[in-house]
């Protein structure tokens, strides 16, 4: 698909939202590794898992798979290998 300025803006916006939510998950994951009984953190973690999944399914329906090796559905033609790669944007 053609990369118009508009499309690129949407890509960046959605990507930023995913990065923000996934950052919380990384942070909570490390915290829970050393505080496994913190009930509140566990609830927060599960809540962000849901948010992340919802954002990613929206992103992937517009811009293709975020994951290879069976962790995302694919379209035909195979779009996983298509640019942009993270260092290109």
């Amino acid at each position: 698909m053609e990369w118009t300025d508009e499309r690129f803006k949407v890509y960046q916006q959605l990507m930023k939202e995913i990065q923000a939510v996934d950052f919380v998950l990384v942070e909570l994951n490390l915290y829970l590794d050393t505080h496994p009984n913190d009930q509140q953190a566990v609830e927060q973690y599960n809540d962000y898992v849901r948010q992340s999944a919802a954002l990613k399914s929206r992103f992937q329906s517009m811009f293709g798979p975020l994951y290879g090796f069976g962790n995302s559905y694919t379209t035909c033609p195979w779009s996983w290998k298509e640019a942009p790669w993270p260092w290109q944007v």
Partner: peptide
């Protein structure tokens, strides 16, 4: 490992 096609934090 599972590769994610995203940076952990935006690099500009």
């Amino acid at each position: 490992w599972v590769y994610e096609k995203k940076l952990q934090y935006p690099v500009r």
